[in-house]
Write a protein that binds this DNA or RNA. Structure first.
Lengths: 143, 143
DNA sequence: GAGATATACTTGAGTGGTCAATGATATACA
DNA sequence: TGTATATCATTGACCACTCAAGTATATCTC
């Protein structure tokens, strides 16, 4: 209960901050982040879906927005005609850099300034035992 | 990051379980739970909004569904003409009882069986320091 | 007691996402 | 080689929710 409330409140907050300052959804941000971290700055849509916990159709629609804004571009795969890569553009990388300032400040206010290093470690350790918390993604150190 | 992922995955899971077995959203469930715990089993809509972290309009629409299903009824307030109470009906209480079996089993699988009592305490203690985690609500012990 | 201001709720329009169905390609195997 | 099955992506229909605006009632202050 408290866990659920806590998260809900936090995501809202971070999301609102991001939208207010950069017109980017928290999901948008996460997608950009994962792309920036991937080899060639490109990822198959389905892998993206896995990483940000969205359905494939959610990813399609989200990427429509980012492509339209010029932050991400589509790319075909030579060896598999079914896949369509999402590749981060220079503009997207730039946008991510700007947005990360906001986001990291928000995260800082919520976590870093609120807990000691040991507490953060403890928290991370506990949460890692939840299913689907999955392997480390980019920027885990900060969150 | 991990925190956000963990929560997102968990809420989805619990929500899906609840919908599959009782056609109830996780928010619906939380509303019923708060009502059951309130004096007279009734709450002002705005208080409900605070407790389940939804906007007033979200509550209005959610309650439309629950009223339509007969789980909640509207009630005027004698001393303040603006407020409309949401009161849990017998059917609603019954529904809550059924649903809580599912929900608590889900929570159990995710938390209770995964952490020791001390760890749960630790987790609760850490999370309580997050903003908006707010005061204890009903059933906090289990979550 | 008459505004001005604040509070409780609802509504219309829009958003971010889901699910189920579809099309296209890839893989496995008789 | 051809058919069955699985996988990747997209689309249409829908849902839960938000925001901004509107209505109605309450409270405060002069």
């Amino acid at each position: 209960m408290r866990f659920l409330r806590a998260h809900a409140a936090i995501t809202r907050q971070l999301n609102a901050d991001l939208i207010a300052s950069h017109e980017l959804t928290l999901s948008d941000y996460e997608v950009l982040l994962h792309l920036a971290d991937a080899p060639e700055r490109a990822l198959r849509r389905i892998d993206l879906a896995d990483r940000v916990l969205l359905t494939p159709s959610g990813i399609t629609r989200l990427l429509n927005g980012l492509e339209c804004a010029g932050f991400v571009e589509r790319g075909d795969c030579a060896s598999d005609g079914r896949v369509v890569y999402a590749r981060l553009t220079e503009a997207g990388l730039e946008k991510l850099r700007e947005a990360s300032a906001t986001h990291l400040a928000g995260v800082g206010a919520l976590f870093t300034e609120r807990f000691s290093t040991e507490e953060l470690e403890q928290l991370g350790w506990l949460l890692a035992r939840l299913p689907a918390a999955g392997p480390e993604g980019p920027a885990c150190a900060a969150d």
